[in-house]
Amino acid sequence: MDGSLARAVADLGAWLRLAPLLTEYLPFPERALRPSALAALLDEVLVGNRTVLVELGSGPSSVVLARLLARRGFGRLLSIEHDERWAAFVNLQLRREGLHHLVRVVHAPLTPHPAALDGLPWYSPTLVRDEVTAYVERFGLIDLLLVDGPDLPTAPPAPTTPSAPLGEGNPGLVRYPAMPVLRGALAPGASLLVDDVEASAAVLNRWADEYGTTFRRSPTSGLAHCVLAPV
């Protein structure tokens, strides 16, 4: 079975598993988690008993996660989203379903960031700092972080070269700041999940070198997963 067929079969099985939580229509844009990745995320929330969740990049996963947390009866989610229109839609959908008390969706525009590489943008540093600090103070350290944003290029990025001008290096490194910014807010044993495993390879490799993370990479779901050791 080739890779594309294996992914299609996995996604079909995931749709069947997700059916109890697909209580009303949601748009699933191309940027959203694959169904098999979403099912793997929900499995980790339940089996790992994760309760303080953060996702970088909002979408249908935010709403489905909220439905799961509501049915389970505990847990909170902070979602950081750079697209103002999409953040507004997710917030509206959560309010329509009476789930807004479980999820905070924050619109954080992409700006220059001190932790970014090659001059690439990341979420507004002040907004992220303030939101994550308030969230952790209220609910405790983060025990699951999903890195699904900012959006990655659709084509494989060109390798960064020493002569590349600022901001024109490897765009596949755009998600790099997630670890240097949020590592101190992650609980010992927290789960770290990263979507778009192939396009995120440069980020995963750098984190492995700098933080000693060992990721299990699934080409079928497109997710990479690791459990963080104590700092």
Rank of each mutant, 00 (worst) to 15 (best):
H107E: 14
N49A: 14
P219N: 02
L117E: 08
N49K: 13
R138C: 09
L69S: 08
R104S: 15
A14P: 06
G57N: 09
W15I: 10
D2T: 12
W86R: 15
L193Q: 00
G73W: 03
L56N: 06
L166T: 11
T126H: 10
R71S: 01
A158C: 00
V174N: 03
E131Y: 05
L26A: 06
G222W: 01
L42K: 04
V54N: 02
A158V: 02
L120D: 08
T161K: 12
L46D: 01
E97R: 08
L78V: 12
G184N: 01
N170K: 06
I142M: 01
S62Q: 06
A88E: 13
V128C: 01
A116N: 01
S79C: 08
P109S: 02
A178T: 06
G98Q: 10
E131H: 07
T23I: 08
A164Y: 04
L18D: 01
L166Y: 14
L223P: 06
R129A: 13
H113P: 05
V103F: 08
L46R: 13
S200Q: 07
A164G: 05
L182K: 07
D151Y: 10
D130W: 01
S221I: 04
E55I: 11
D195Y: 07
L182A: 04
Y211E: 14
R72D: 02
P230A: 13
A32E: 15
G73T: 05
D148I: 11
Y123D: 05
E30N: 06
P125A: 00
G189H: 04
D151W: 09
F139S: 11
P27T: 12
L69P: 07
A224M: 08
R31E: 15
L192V: 15
D195E: 08
W207Y: 04
E84H: 02
A116K: 03
D118L: 10
P162S: 02
A202L: 11
P121I: 11
L68H: 10
E30I: 09
S124L: 12
A108G: 09
G48C: 00
V103N: 09
A87C: 04
V106A: 08
L69G: 02
V105F: 12
E131C: 05
E81H: 05
P162K: 04
V147Q: 03
W15F: 15
R76I: 12
R50K: 14
E210R: 12
L41S: 06
R138G: 08
L12G: 10
V132H: 04
F74G: 08
L102E: 04
A115I: 00
T126G: 07
L152A: 07
V52S: 06
G13P: 09
L77R: 08
V181E: 12
T213N: 00
E55G: 01
L186S: 00
P112S: 14
N205R: 15
R129F: 12
Y25G: 06
L78N: 10
T214C: 14
M179A: 12
L173W: 00
L204R: 11
L102T: 10
L193C: 00
I142G: 00
R31S: 15
P60C: 13
P159Y: 12
L22P: 02
R206V: 03
P171I: 12
F74K: 13
W207C: 01
L26R: 15
Q93D: 09
S36G: 09
P114T: 08
